[in-house]
């Protein structure tokens, strides 16, 4: 049910942006999910229609972009996918690395129609 709580936050954020930008209707909401965040894209899609019901987001599409969980190896300076390589650099085998990306959960952009002024 974790995804529902997070979707509620997303709805609030989109509503705010819609108000600020004089939006008439929302066509698509584009979000970014890091591969290493605890958010499951499948559940986001599944709960999206219910969570957005009765809001300006109702009927809109949800587009999800995944951000890879990449780490930078401190030994050989190679960038590698942390999840695929189970937390070890595939080149030199070191487990001394820093995370570059993969924890994100962002509202990237919204595709809208505007109110005619």
């Amino acid at each position: 049910m974790h995804e529902v709580t997070i979707l509620v936050e997303l709805v609030k954020m989109v509503e705010e942006a819609a108000k600020e930008n004089n939006v008439a209707s929302i066509d698509t909401v584009i979000i970014q999910i890091g591969q290493l965040s605890s958010i499951v894209p499948r559940y986001m899609r599944e709960y999206y229609p219910n969570t957005t019901e009765g809001t300006i987001l109702e009927g809109s599409k949800l587009k999800i972009e995944m951000i890879p969980g990449n780490g930078l190896c401190h030994h050989c300076d190679k960038v590698f996918n942390v999840a695929k390589n189970k937390g070890k650099c595939p080149i030199c085998g070191a487990d001394d690395w820093e995370l570059l990306s993969g924890r994100e959960f962002n509202l990237k952009e919204i595709v809208v129609t505007e109110n005619k002024s």
């Binding site: 997070i6 936050e9 997303l10 609030k12 954020m13 942006a17 930008n21 939006v23 008439a24 209707s25 066509d27 979000i31 994100e104 959960f105 962002n106 509202l107 990237k108 952009e109 919204i110 595709v111 809208v112 129609t113 505007e114």
Partner: peptide, 18 residues
């Protein structure tokens, strides 16, 4: 058909809580 426009937001969803 109304014209579609893209509004860039680029904000973390945790931002308002933070």
């Amino acid at each position: 058909m109304d014209e579609l426009k893209v509004i860039e937001i680029k904000k973390s969803i945790y931002e308002s809580n933070d």
